[in-house]
Amino acid sequence: MTCEKPLDPHSEITLRVNGNPHTLLVDHRRVLLDLLREDLGLTGSKKGCDHGQCGACTVLVDGRRVNGCLLLAVTLDGSEVTTIEGLGGDGEEPHPLQRAFLERDAFQCGYCTPGQICSAVGMIAEAAAGHPSHVTDPAEPSGRPVPLDGAEIRERLSGNLCRCGAYPRIVEAVEEVTG
């Protein structure tokens, strides 16, 4: 594999976003977050820091929660992406977490909210799959689902900052759905 001329800084990729296939020619510099917001008009995923330091851009890629701001879109060719807009599935009904956030007033300005909710969806799946956290007792046997008490939820959602300070109600909303 040798190269005489500079490589093309663009590539064509195909993604499924919220169930819909998209084929796009992307600038290699484009991160998933900007692809969602700028190319697909899915602005529910938020840009809070653009450097993986706030969690507002959290989406699910192949079912796992990740920071969309740090993933180059070109690396995701063939991936399945779920954003806040797609959590409820096809129907009009919101996801139970969305409903719980609304009813518990688990937000104020709303800017971190989509990331909090997507993060919680991913986090609940991780705990169910037996992933431990920093606050899980190391003596707990591996491979079993980890029950989500308040301390577990707080630790696992710590990658999602909220400057309005809605944390206690976010934890309540998650407990309502998992409890």
Binding site: F101, G110, P114
Partner: peptide, 8 residues
């Protein structure tokens, strides 16, 4: 609230 929790 609904707009905020649905990303709209």
């Amino acid at each position: 609230g609904r707009e905020k929790v649905t990303g709209n």
